[in-house]
């Protein structure tokens, strides 16, 4: 008895025409997008020596203006802390309203609408608007981070509530408990650990985002950083970047530690 001597693995897309068509589409897209971007290759070819030059000017990092550096860093940290706190408080009502199994339909749609809207726009866009409304400075940054935190935490709360065990809710409801009592006895115990975890994660995320809202004038270390790039002060830029990396790294370790404890 003889056996086949060739074997090909079954392909994800069984029709060869579609399979090759997909590859052709990918290649066509690459050409189209590269063409559409109007890339200035001459300018890019200069980029490599420029990058070298930039790196040379970055070293050694200049930590001498430490007062300016620390003021920015502390402002970023304060923005992150304050925004996380306000965010975790305000997110609770919004999250409850955004849970389909607790809130009536109109409330649900409004809450979800707010969450989707504020999550769609990048922090920097929101920051610009707050800068226009309340002027330059940390208040705009703080408000931006609050908006981002509220929508993020609220989304998590709403999803947790939707995924929670409804049997427990029914059991408490069966005792004749009112809605607030229901929240305290059946909902809160189920979502509290993850809620705290999400808040801690958000603190960590706010720390990272607080470095960027400054670029449009909303306070924090980002403002200082953006200024150093405009002045070609690359050695100071590097000092700030190193500080940010260290700060975020410490923040991440802290956040992992707390979340480990909560488990």
């Amino acid at each position: 008895m003889s056996y086949p001597t060739t074997w090909r693995p079954p392909s994800l897309i069984s029709t060869p025409m579609y399979r090759y068509g997909l590859w052709a589409a990918v290649i066509a897209y690459l050409f189209w997008s590269m063409g559409a971007l109007e890339i200035d290759w001459h300018r890019i070819s200069q980029g490599i020596p420029r990058a070298g030059n930039m790196i040379v000017r970055m070293f050694p990092p200049d930590f001498s203006r430490s007062e300016l550096l620390w003021r920015g860093v502390i402002e970023s940290i304060q923005m992150a802390f304050a925004a996380s706190f306000v965010g975790m408080v305000l997110a609770i009502p919004l999250g409850l309203c955004g849970a389909r199994n607790l809130a009536p339909a109109p409330v649900y749609y409004v809450a979800r609408g707010i969450i989707v809207l504020s999550r769609t726009f990048h922090e920097v866009i929101i920051a610009i608007f707050f800068v226009k409304i309340v002027g330059f400075g940390p208040l705009a940054g703080l408000l931006t981070l609050i908006v981002a935190s509220v929508s993020f935490i609220a989304k998590m709360i709403a999803e947790d509530i939707e995924n929670m065990n409804m049997g427990q809710v029914e059991a408490v409801r069966a005792t004749g408990a009112s809605f607030p009592k229901l929240l305290i006895y059946a909902v809160q115990p189920q979502i509290l650990p993850r809620y705290l975890g999400v808040c801690i994660y958000r603190l960590d995320a706010n720390l990272r985002h607080s470095t960027v809202v400054g670029i449009v004038g909303a306070g924090g270390i980002g403002m200082t950083l953006s200024a150093t790039f405009k002045r070609y002060d690359y050695d100071f830029s590097l000092a700030i970047l190193i500080t940010i990396i260290a700060l975020v790294f410490i923040g991440e370790i802290f956040s992992n530690w707390v979340r480990g404890k909560l488990r």
Partner: peptide, 9 residues
């Protein structure tokens, strides 16, 4: 503390 120390107008 964070909110108070921020240079907010």
């Amino acid at each position: 503390w964070s909110i108070q120390n921020l240079d907010i107008t």
